[in-house]
Design a protein around this nucleic acid. Structure first.
Ligand code: FES
Ligand code: FES
Lengths: 151, 151
DNA sequence: TCTTCATGTAACTTAAAATATTACATGAAA
DNA sequence: TTTCATGTAATATTTTAAGTTACATGAAGA
């Protein structure tokens, strides 16, 4: 069982894009995320379909945010990523006819749904803008020593 | 990202053991779970260390519950399984020096902790006994047509 | 126009986990 | 002393995620 850090990673990308003046290339973003440009393009390509980012080809091209920082919540991004399951635990579904399994699943599903609902509700209340503000606050306190680039 | 159904699977095992008169062999349990006996022995071996089940070798051997159904909660079992992460989503930790990452992680960690706490709190209130009662209720309503065995 | 740069995507490869299997030792009952 | 079942290490298989290569498309600049 491994944790999916795609949401976290995408936030990283978006905030870095918010910081930048112009478009940012997938190569630059890949540098920050220590991964391959194609991976970035795949991820951001999905977000573009949802209208969160836009891209431009050719000289001076790259990626930029398509919406206002205030209007984008973690939940929006979560949806744009395909709303992957939020919980690492799940129900067995291999023997649907088994009454034991039915009883187990019924009991756990309630708990799962409650936890998931709580998490997604929190996501609604976190905007890119609030993250950006928090970032600025941190930048004032610490001298940034980011390996990949200067702020 | 795949969901871990170990908890669900273990509950299945334990309830089947609760139903049985004597010890149940790992082979029989493997049949119900459509897996290999060694896999069962590995999982139950972990639970034995926590005092949830006990095993006997040789003729007439197998696995049985070691504690009262009322006294075992989902949370106990979760702990006995090593308390694996409950959430599928997680924080990136690849660039700990990055201030953007710090801001993102700080914001999400709160939400993660809240959701996890809620789920585990629910686990505390579900006992093996309550699951067993629910199972009996279902058995009365439906005629059991379990492929692996009769109840 | 022709070169350069960057995205868009499919196909492929690599790497990492999770799961399953084999093999054999240990100990208990018949 | 044979049979049965657990205990466990080592191995193999399967599945899933991540990364890479290759090349097409289109935009800007020389
Ligand atoms: S295998 Fe679960 S009820 Fe029979
Ligand atoms: S790479 Fe994230 S702050 Fe620089």
């Amino acid at each position: 069982m491994k944790r999916d850090s795609r949401l976290s990673g995408v936030l990283h990308l978006l905030l870095h894009m918010a910081e930048a003046d112009g478009p940012v290339t997938s190569e630059a973003l890949a540098g920050m995320m220590q991964t391959n440009p194609v991976v970035i393009r795949r991820i951001l390509g999905g977000l573009r379909k949802e209208g969160l980012v836009q891209s431009e080809k050719g000289h001076g091209g790259g990626w930029r945010l398509a919406r206002d920082l205030e209007s984008v919540t973690l939940y929006d991004i979560h949806l744009a990523l395909g709303a992957p399951g939020v919980l690492a635990l799940g129900n067995r579904t291999e023997s649907p006819g088994c009454l034991v399994e039915q009883a187990v699943n019924a009991a756990m599903s309630d708990a799962f749904e409650a936890a998931e609902a709580l998490l997604l509700e929190r996501f609604h209340s976190i905007t890119l803008a609030s993250l950006s503000r928090d970032f600025s606050r941190r930048r004032k306190r610490n001298a940034s020593t980011c390996d990949q680039h200067r702020h």
